[in-house]
Amino acid sequence: MNLLESNIRHLVRFTLNGAQVEGYAEPRLLLTDFLRHELGATGTHVGCEHGVCGACTILLDGRAVRSCLMLAVQVEGAAIETIEGLAQEDGGFSPLQQAFHENFALQCGYCTPGILMSMTEYLRDNPNPTKKEVRVALSGNLCRCTGYHEIVNAILDAAKALREEDGASS
């Protein structure tokens, strides 16, 4: 147990998309700002800073969370995944990204990283969701451009592709 003083920048280390990273943060520094401006991982976006819009959603130890509602110092030692780590190893789109691409499921793309990270967890736990379930799962991510229809279709397509991928590999 270590008290981190308010006006000092403290070393924070964790893994970001599998790679060990570190930087310095005052206790009050939001994780969003740390990711974006200390580590240069600007793919995670900020839309409200009060937890409602979902643009900042990342995976913390495999679970989708709002990074605007976390402090950088809280993730010491954690494993974080962001949009930058979503593509396949060869750089190609993951099934989720591919489905978004083919379905015109993004316009400005500002909400997209948060949605992709949310759905990464969601589809892992719910490989075969219904349309209605997808809408409920999406409700924590606001999008102003698309009207959601194509996003829902993309997620259903991605679920199918992932199931097939899974079926093929097992």
Binding site: M1, N2, L3, L4, S6, P27, R28, L30, E49, L71
Partner: peptide, 11 residues
């Protein structure tokens, strides 16, 4: 919209 200063302890 950024927090004010505080000390932080993880127990």
């Amino acid at each position: 919209m950024k927090p004010p200063r505080f000390d932080y302890v993880r127990v």
